[in-house]
Design a protein around this nucleic acid. Structure first.
Lengths: 348, 348
DNA sequence: TTGTATGCGTTATCAT
DNA sequence: ATGATAACGCATACAA
């Protein structure tokens, strides 16, 4: 059997390759990095190149990237923190980031905060020591000041999907969800001439909370409507919290005739629970969501929603990041707005 | 402004801390690793410990994990390859792995193959050089022989979610989906006394393909039923491929009265397209799936399905891996079977 | 209890 | 075109 897992086992190094090929260790290094860099290719004779390559194959040599990183101070790895791996909104975003990263020969370290504050901090703590070359993140709880402290010590490029981050060295992608909420609400009101419109939001200390509630409120006021506190519920982005909001609404006696939910998962929870209680969507209660996750096309009636463009978001974040990584001296701060658009289906 | 991104910037090292504290660099190392190891704590005087810690804080020093890894040959990172980030089945699994990893002070590098062969190979290539301390993976296309070649050269523990991997050094978690399919099919047949039962599978060169088709076939035969090739369709695990299978079935003219889909996503695509074409589920066609992803509870009728236990799978894989990492000499191969159970909802 | 010296496996700067 | 040598930041054997 092989020497698997024996403590004594030692991976072949450049020295081993060099000895076998009858050259010096730095020569091996040059041969191998000629492929990457592309410029130094002429510095090595074809003959020794061949001998080295043969030795590499014979030994099954693989460069030790840890040693390389120590020397070059680059890990060719970026870290990404997203808020919820299980939320369909983030998949295309993560995928897009990985696609761009691969074009640049980078790996992506994905982490998941589950919307939990401590996890966001833990991620930043890890990142500070980990040697990654750049960071993409969706800070939900982290304030601009807290994040700034990390960035000031990390000395690597950061890109965030956020609106509330002010640090001059953090590039931003953001979504004008205030406007989207405003226009979505207005569309919803006009669509059915609704008078009583509800809202399922999230706590005010989460960044999208106040913004989207304000967009909603303004649209209501501009339509001459009052926001009725009985129809305002707070969730936490999850399906279950949407169901809970629906139960709370039903127990309250009177129902609004239309509801704006600030994400699809809660909107779907709402629909499911409303239907289980015998209400028809959209006839009794119209529902509109936010995100356009895959489940929005599965629920019946299919969910009308404000679609974000997570692929665009991920691509732009990654492109901004790699531009910084490859050009560390460009100084102006970049901010990119990714747009929303309404997708009309059957729930409103 | 800070020296952010200036090429000249140098993170403080142990030498800087040592100089500031008036001690030698190894002393700093000892102070800092006292917290981790726990044993060496008595070796340093309280006074110098304090001085060192003060210097650390003052400089904002963070250990360079790349250098540490080079020295210790441990990265405290494991890599995980899953087949599809966007498939709800894998979330609890990834989450469970991360939870276990955190208990061991490990980070998890998540990668996504998208069911693509080249990506599985790329992952293994990266892993070989990356210095991770262990690997968890879901090999879909990779054959036992191919994977074995990587493992023989990697000299780190591997754990796979698979049945077809034979290598004596790869620990396995597996699901007896042959039996689950058999029993699910039998239940389906009995439930509605069905005579014509369809099957949505995947290509034979994907490991679950033949196993589940065989389980289906046996159950049919044991019930005295013939497998009708007109009712057998091949998909690729995606919702869209389920829809396509349904369209193909509908165009075929005659429909089965019950269909077994080997995953939930295809089952849901089936239901949606069937309903759009005017068929009732389960009255006209009963449908059963496999996995119990969150969407199974969203679709109406709610999907009857064979639930896997991804949290259990992830936990066991991680536990096996860390046992190997922490005890490299234990030699016997571990194999764990994670069980399925039927969840009866409304689609069958 | 602490300091000195060495090496982990690379890349980079000199030479030659 | 290639070889000798140093350095990246840390942990550890050994000396004191």
């Amino acid at each position: 059997m092989s020497d698997f897992r024996s403590k004594q086992f030692k991976r072949p190094t450049m020295y081993d390759v060099a000895r076998l090929a009858g050259v010096s260790q730095p020569t091996v290094s040059r041969v191998l990095s000629a492929g990457n860099a592309g410029d130094a290719s002429a510095l090595i004779s074809d003959e020794t190149t061949q001998r080295v390559l043969d030795a590499v194959n014979k030994l099954g040599y693989r460069p030790n990237v840890v040693a390389r990183s120590l020397r070059t101070r680059r890990t060719f790895t970026v870290a990404m923190l997203i808020a919820d791996l299980s939320n369909g909104f983030y998949h295309p975003m993560a995928r897009a980031v990985q696609d761009v990263a691969r074009q640049h020969n980078y790996e992506v370290l994905i982490s998941n905060s589950d919307h939990i504050y401590e996890n966001e901090r833990h991620f930043c703590d890890i990142v500070l020591g980990s040697g990654v070359d750049g960071v993409l993140m969706v800070p939900i709880h982290l304030s601009s000041d807290e994040l700034s402290q990390y960035v000031d010590r990390a000395h690597i490029p950061f890109v965030a999907l956020a609106e509330h981050i002010k640090h001059p060295h953090i590039d931003l992608v953001w979504v004008n969800d205030h406007r989207a909420t405003y226009e979505g609400t207005r569309w919803l009101i006009n669509k059915g001439s609704h008078q009583k419109v509800g809202f399922i939001g999230v706590s005010d200390d989460l960044p999208p909370g106040p913004r989207r509630f304000d967009g909603f409120t303004r649209a209501m006021n501009d339509a001459g409507l009052q926001v009725d506190p009985r129809f305002i519920k707070i969730g936490d982005f999850t399906l279950e919290s949407g169901k809970k909001a629906a139960r709370s609404l039903i127990e309250g006696g009177e129902l609004p005739t239309a509801i704006f939910a600030i994400n699809d998962l809660m909107a779907i929870g709402l629909i499911l629970t409303l239907q289980d209680a015998g209400y028809r969507v959209p006839e009794d209660v119209a529902v509109i969501g936010f995100d356009d996750i895959p489940e929005a096309s599965i629920v019946r009636p299919a969910l009308t929603t404000l679609a974000q463009n997570p692929r665009d978001i991920g691509e732009k974040m990654a492109e901004m990041l790699f531009e910084r990584i490859e050009n560390p001296n460009s100084t102006e701060r970049r901010v990119y707005e990714s747009h929303c658009h309404l997708i009309v289906r059957d729930s409103a």
